[in-house]
């Protein structure tokens, strides 16, 4: 076992965290594609790949613990490690939601489809994917200003969610055959909405990394008022 210096280890932690972010982003993208295209093979792929995401979280946690125990980091270095530990657990949860979307795809059997709702879900997932990509970039650059802007974008995701909810309700009222399918749409919608919330969490961690302050962006009070 060869020890390397702290900077190299920290850099490695960054790289591995960013890789995890890309894995999660891919899972989200594939899971929504699988759902919209009724592609069960792709959905299974997402479910299988989740194991790697989970392992990566455990690996990052283990490395972080070791760095804290062996290097006794302080100030910015310590915040950096805490940020990776906290944000990687947010990423892991995002991956779990992608799995839930993939599972909804597999469950679907001959539902009556509503193309208009699927269209909005596709737009919503594109927005979420874009936010995930942006937050990873902001993390790498430790860009606090950008993090705040990305968190503000979550209201667009919430607006999509609101729209889908209403569309589903009216579909169910108009055509009871779409009830089962619409329930699935609402589920996928809520998973995507939650992923947006986890992006906001990571925004908060980037602010913590830079300032040492724990802030609450997009408080639930505002979010609850949408409905």
């Amino acid at each position: 076992m060869f020890r390397r210096n702290f900077e190299d280890e920290l850099n490695d932690l960054h790289v591995r965290f960013s890789e995890m972010g890309m894995m999660v982003n891919e899972a989200i993208y594939k899971s929504v594609n699988a759902f919209i295209n009724h592609d069960k093979t792709l959905a299974k792929e997402v479910i299988e790949a989740d194991e790697r995401i989970n392992q990566r979280e455990v690996d990052l946690e283990k490395r972080s613990f070791e760095m804290i125990a062996l290097q006794q980091p302080v100030t910015g270095d310590l915040r950096m490690i805490v940020t990776v530990m906290k944000a990687s657990s947010d990423l892991e949860r995002m991956g779990d939601h992608a799995v839930s979307i993939a599972k909804s795809t597999i469950r679907v059997k001959g539902n009556v489809r509503v193309p208009e709702i699927e269209q909005v879900l596709a737009e919503m997932s594109t927005k979420v994917k874009q936010m995930v990509e942006e937050i990873l970039d902001a993390y790498v650059k430790a860009d606090m200003k950008r993090a705040k802007e990305i968190a503000a974008e979550d209201k667009n995701v919430d607006a999509y969610s609101d729209r889908i909810y209403k569309m589903c309700l009216s579909q169910m009222q108009e055509n009871p055959d779409t009830i089962v399918g619409s329930m699935d749409y609402m589920l996928v919608d809520s998973y995507l909405e939650r992923i947006g919330d986890y992006v906001t969490n990571i925004c908060e961690w980037i602010i913590y990394l830079e300032t040492g302050k724990l802030v609450e962006l997009n408080s639930n009070v505002e979010e609850d008022n949408i409905f």
């Binding site: 076992m1 060869f2 020890r3 702290f6 125990a69 062996l70 290097q71 006794q72």
Partner: peptide, 9 residues
């Protein structure tokens, strides 16, 4: 102790 943990294999 910190030195031991920082640099030793």
């Amino acid at each position: 102790m910190q030195q031991a943990s920082r640099i030793s294999d």
